[in-house]
Design a protein around this nucleic acid. Structure first.
Length: 500
RNA sequence: GGCGAUAUGGUGUAACUGGUUAACACGUCGCCCUCUCAAGGCGAAGAGUUCGGGUUCGAGCCCCGAUAUCGCUACCA
């Protein structure tokens, strides 16, 4: 048995990656299989260079070590898709040769226009460009003219032409799922920049890396028929598919950073223990069901199963067939309870160690110290000055965060803009400064007003160490979370006020 | 809109694969403990299993229909 996770290095490591990672890890280890980590860096536009290392660190932090991967090697490498472009090109050529795929010369702009027209006409947006039916001569002419092109999968059947009209695949948790080919678009396999799309690279790599079980999130169900079509076109065995329920926000939408902290970096910096995180993720979607009477006897398990369990417990009794398919809400309240449980369970030494490696680590203190040193007269004032670096929550009062010439509403609107502006920033003083200033010019806020507002949100006070440096030291994930929580809290306060 | 998936208290899950009054945990509320706050202990409220039909002696578990939610619908993954 071989399984894999395939994160994309597009930003901070995501809790969803750890979730799917845990599931894959459990699956492999329970069956004596291998757990592979593959980096899917084929999207050049979203690529973030620091991301890959953060993914490694975050997965190791929660304790999920892979058997094969870009940094540890293995017999099926390279494990980074950007290093496998030759392979994709070669296999894609086979598809071209067999007519399973074709070159499409339409530009992105043309397709966009067409898509909008289809949407306006209330039709399903689908590729219907002329390239699909080019004669070899026409295609050759376009190719020689140097027109950029993508390579698309020729989905057979239905109103598209001859061939099988639908694809059925088995999902191990749901049974057979069927898609009519009229609803399967001619997927782009190779982009015009020469990089493959997920669909192509994923299928080729999974096959070449001997992946037997594809355990991934539910969002992939709709594209699975395309993958199955590819496996068949290559004459390869189709792996087993296990689609896992999607983690959700409190409103049941797919978990997102707008509504939840999703960065593993955040959880580590905010002082969550990896055991608690792993335990919590194991709770999502079931799997740790009560043992049956037989299991209690034959495996010698406890009758009572609490919500608190370790990775070792999961290895022993996590049952994939018992996963419940409803998308679980990622509930911070329960996570915090679990984290508290683990914290209370620590010895004083362990607790100190946890503090010393996180909140009170030398590296963190070293970054804070210079910001504070020149501003205090006794060491005890360090606490007064730097408290916000160590707090989970600060609660500035309106007198502090609302500028004199502004209303509360204006200020909150601006705060939301500020969050949006700074969200996409590279987390350096220069970059934050630039985007803040451009926003302030835009919205006609003075630099002083804007900085004071953010200072209040970050620190809860009107005086603090330099704002930009503080933000950088505090970290992007936590800073953004603090602003989001501020907005949430103000929204709630407003709702309360209007109710009275 | 089309296609697909899903549906048990506010949240996460159970219910021995049809068999009493739907269980556990988190959260909420109350009481006890206590200098406070937590933790801990005890207790309470909260779902009749999305809705409507059907099969059956009997349905949360099976069948049909409806609804709702989520996902996909990109030269993103």
């Amino acid at each position: 048995m071989r399984v894999r996770i395939a994160p994309s290095p597009t930003g901070d490591p995501h809790v969803g990656t750890a979730y799917i990672g845990l599931l894959n890890y459990l699956f492999a280890k329970q069956r004596g299989g291998k757990f592979v980590l593959r980096i899917e860096d084929t999207d050049r536009t979203r690529f973030v260079s620091s991301s890959e290392q953060m993914i490694f660190d975050a997965l190791r932090w929660v304790g999920l070590q892979w058997d094969e991967g870009p940094d540890v090697g293995g017999p099926h490498g390279p494990y980074r898709q950007s290093e496998r472009t030759e392979i994709y090109r070669e296999y894609c050529q086979r598809l071209l040769d067999s007519g399973t795929a074709y070159r499409a010369f339409e530009t992105a702009e043309e397709l966009e226009v067409e898509r909008k027209a289809q949407m306006a006409a209330k039709q399903a947006p689908k590729y219907a460009g002329p390239s699909r039916n080019y004669t070899p001569d026409q295609a050759a002419t376009a190719l020689e003219a140097g027109k950029p092109y993508t390579i698309r999968l020729r989905v057979p059947g239905g109103d598209k032409g001859p061939g099988i009209a639908s694809t059925t695949f088995r999902d191990e948790l749901r049974g057979n799922v069927t898609f009519d080919h009229n609803n399967v678009d001619d997927q782009v396999l190779m982009k015009s920049d020469g990089y493959p799309t997920y669909h192509l690279a994923n299928v080729i790599d999974d096959h070449l890396m001997g992946i037997t079980d594809v355990i991934r999130a539910e969002e992939w169900i709709s594209s699975t028929p395309k993958h199955v079509l590819l496996y068949r076109a290559f004459g390869w065995d189709v792996p087993r598919f296990w689609h896992m329920p999607l983690l959700r926000n409190a409103d049941k939408s797919k978990i997102s950073k707008r509504k939840n902290p999703v960065s593993l970096i955040y959880y580590r910096q905010a002082g969550f223990l990896p055991e608690a995180m792993l335990n919590f993720l194991g709770l999502m979607g079931g799997g740790m069901a009560q043992p049956s009477e037989q299991e209690i006897v034959t495996k010698g398990l406890d009758t009572k199963l609490s919500d608190k369990f370790s990775l070792a417990d999961m290895l022993q009794r996590f049952d994939f067939l018992r996963i419940s398919l409803g998308g679980p809400v990622f509930d911070l309240v329960k996570l915090k309870w679990l984290n508290g449980e683990y914290l209370r369970g620590q010895t004083t030494e362990e607790f100190l160690e946890a503090l010393r490696t996180t909140l009170l680590s030398d590296s963190y203190l070293r970054e804070i110290a210079p910001l504070v040193q020149t501003r205090i007269e006794t060491l005890a004032q360090f606490g007064d000055m730097a408290d916000f670096f160590f707090k989970d929550d600060v609660q500035p009062s309106p007198e502090i965060f609302v500028p004199k010439k502004r209303t509360l509403d204006e200020t909150l609107t601006f705060s939301a803009d500020l969050l949006a502006a700074v969200e996409g920033c590279e987390w350096t003083t220069e970059s934050i400064d630039a985007s803040m200033r451009s926003l302030m010019t835009d919205k006609e806020w003075s630099v002083k007003e804007g900085f004071m507002l953010l200072r209040a949100i970050l620190t809860g006070k009107s005086a603090s160490p330099p704002l930009l440096e503080s933000l950088v030291v505090f970290g992007k994930a936590r800073s953004l979370d603090r602003v989001r929580r501020f907005l949430d809290m103000q929204k709630k306060a407003a709702a309360m006020a209007s109710r009275k």
